[in-house]
Design a protein around this nucleic acid. Sequence first.
DNA 1: ACCTCGACCTGCAAGC
DNA 2: TGCTTGCAGGTCGAGG
Length: 287
Amino acid sequence: MPELPEVETVRRGLAPAMEDARIVKVEVRHRGLRWPIVKDFEKRLEGQTVVGLGRRAKYLLADLSSGEVLVMHLGMSGSFRVDDGQIAKYHHEKSKSTAHDHVVFHMSNGATLTFNDPRRFGSMKIVPRGKMESEPLLALIGPEPLGNAFDAAMLAGACAGRKTSLKAALLDQRVVAGLGNIYVCEALFRARLSPKRRAATVAGRKGAPNARAVALVDAIKAVLNDAIKAGGSSLRDHRRADGSLGDFQHNFLVYDREGAPCPGCKGVIRRLVQNGRSTFYCPGCQK
DNA sequence: ACCTCGACCTGCAAGC
DNA sequence: TGCTTGCAGGTCGAGG
């Protein structure tokens, strides 16, 4: 479910409960995530202090005092719930079922963090900090879209020579980190570029950026910043860690709006399938 | 090297 | 009312 803005929202929600607190106890109720949670997972975490909580692409990175890093991914349906130990029990009524609460972290500050993931496409893995560079999950991931390193030249270079669609290229985490189906659709609409266009057409000769690359980079940064400001998008179950819903779904211009009037012209939003996934776009505005 | 597709899971809404 | 079908915010690994 989560793309960069949702993961960033989760990170900001978890940080106050995790940072500078010690992991007192870890309960694993289901080890069958995307990869099995290793046998000594609990033992390696218990007693460690979380030095910092970061994010890379759609991964959450909990830096531990042991010198290891807990690398977590929410998959399609993963979420965290924070109980700070002060909130009265009746506040839990609005929580969803606990049937898919797979991992629970008990912190020294009294907070409890519960990872819930019905589809179990999420993952948790412990990696020594010194080996993060070579960690296969992270090694090939492209630039952070909100960082200075991500600019038109970088995007054009990554797309140059590629025959695949622009939509597929932007979903490729090696081109740019953290985008998913929603924000790719939204960014392409904002940049007025067709999702069907060949990726290579954002680059000119020898991979130099053109005006399309500039517009697309601007659109990507803008939509992600807007979405983070809104606390992410809540389609089915994404919540902030405090239980409140993100708001950005109300600002979708094209995503999940097949048949609705285009906000930019007199046309209608269309849906098509690319690489097995829905794309929403306006054929009139996006060329 | 690049590209596409199936697979991994559960839940929910729409259609019959 | 039930059953079936298709679809969902991701990404890895196999095969072309």
